[in-house]
Computed example of a mutant assay.
Amino acid sequence: MSSKKERQNWARLIQKIYEVAPLICPKCWGKMHIISFIKELDVIEKILRHLGLWGIRNHDPPQPVTSDSIPDWVYDFSDSQIPASGCH
Rank of each mutant, 00 (worst) to 15 (best):
S67W: 02
R57P: 01
L41T: 13
S36G: 01
S3L: 12
E6F: 02
P71F: 03
W73P: 03
D76L: 06
D60N: 08
R12C: 01
S3R: 12
A84I: 03
D60L: 12
L48Y: 13
W54Q: 13
H88M: 11
I70Y: 04
N58C: 08
D60Y: 03
H59P: 01
C25V: 14
S2T: 12
E45R: 15
K16H: 03
E6G: 01
P22H: 07
R7K: 15
H88P: 01
D76G: 03
K46A: 15
I17P: 01
P71D: 11
W10N: 04
K46M: 13
R57L: 05
G30D: 06
D76K: 12
N9H: 07
A11L: 11
Q63W: 00
D68M: 08
V74Q: 09
W73L: 14
I44Y: 00
N9V: 12
Y18M: 10
A11W: 02
K39E: 15
V74M: 05
L23T: 15
W10H: 11
I34E: 01
I35L: 07
M1I: 11
P26M: 10
S69T: 10
W29M: 13
S69K: 15
M32L: 14
A11I: 14
D60C: 06
G86K: 10
V74N: 08
F37M: 09
T66N: 04
P64F: 04
S69N: 12
R49N: 09
M32A: 05
I38A: 05
P71W: 03
L23P: 00
I38Q: 11
K39H: 02
F37C: 07
P64G: 04
